[in-house]
């Protein structure tokens, strides 16, 4: 019995969800098909079939490095942003203190500033303090733009958890931190995953800020936009993008599977 909610109404919710899924995956399917064509411009019908683009991807060290760079930056940025988001959410919802609203505003404010403006601002900051630009500076920048998303998502879930749960745990002798760990974290796990994934995705495809901060090692979007300055590079890039997505899907399914087994 999954529908404890409002019972079976006539609203075709599943159809709506599947429709959304189709719209999201349709362009990717087009790219997927195109990546097996011999043509270099994105058009149909395909003039011939080939696996060359995938072979070229595996040959292209710079491209694989760029993808790895993006992965590393995404993980660092998403983890930092999620950590900060959690701390802010717990502080704001579980404690009464002066500046509560201010803290929340601070965590939400990065949403308001367009990425390109943040890029210039970070560029000025890192030049001023003489911190050489690198993947670390990109990760710092991306961690900041992820904070609002992480905070809002965690906040929305945590506001629904009854603080009495923690109080009860503490009545049973737990310290507050261990109450958080034993009671709150397990309940929050799926939300933390969503928050982390959102921040990761925001970072993974971000170019406006990255172009100002990358230094010598390009992230994948910086590499991709650069390569697209030339004709003929499109199919290789698409093949790489397809591989990256398949990798993400596989990792996600494995992660969910492992979690499912734990349950």
């Amino acid at each position: 019995m999954t529908a404890i909610g409002v019972g079976r109404t006539r609203v075709p919710l599943r159809t709506f969800y599947v429709g959304m899924l189709v719209l999201l995956y349709l362009p990717i399917a087009v790219l997927f098909i195109f990546s097996f064509g011999t043509g270099t411009t994105l058009s149909f019908p395909l003039s011939g079939l080939t696996l060359d683009w995938y072979a070229e991807v595996l040959d292209n060290g710079a491209m694989i490095d760029a993808a790895r760079n993006s992965l590393v930056v995404g993980v660092a940025a998403a983890t930092t942003a999620t950590a900060i988001g959690c701390l802010v959410a717990v502080a704001v919802l579980r404690f009464r203190f002066r500046g509560r609203g201010l803290l929340l505003a601070l965590a939400g404010l990065p949403l308001v500033v367009p990425f390109v403006v943040m890029g210039v601002a970070f560029f000025l900051l890192f030049v001023t303090v003489d911190l050489p630009r690198s993947l670390v500076t990109v990760a710092i920048g991306h961690s900041v733009i992820g904070v609002p998303y992480a905070t809002l998502i965690v906040l929305a879930r945590l506001s629904g958890l009854d603080p009495a749960l923690e109080d009860a745990a503490m009545d049973l002798g737990a310290t507050y931190p261990s109450a958080l760990r034993r009671v709150v974290v397990p309940l929050m796990a799926p939300t933390l995953l969503s928050a982390w994934l959102t921040c990761f995705i925001v970072s993974f495809d971000e170019i406006a800020l990255a172009i100002f901060l990358v230094g010598g090692d390009p992230t994948f979007p910086v590499f991709l936009y650069g390569q697209l300055r030339f004709a003929q590079r499109l199919p290789v890039l698409i093949a790489m993008a397809v591989l990256l997505m398949l990798g993400t899907v596989a990792l996600t399914l494995i992660a969910l599977r492992i979690r499912g087994r734990d349950d």
């Binding site: 999201l24 995956y25 362009p27 990717i28 790219l31 995705i201 993974f204 495809d205 994948f220 979007p221 991709l224 936009y225 697209l228 890039l237 698409i238 993008a241 397809v242 990256l244 997505m245 993400t248 899907v249 996600t252």
Partner: peptide
């Protein structure tokens, strides 16, 4: 997951 593919593409 689809957002892992470049928005531009």
């Amino acid at each position: 997951v689809p957002f892992a593919v470049s928005y531009l593409l």
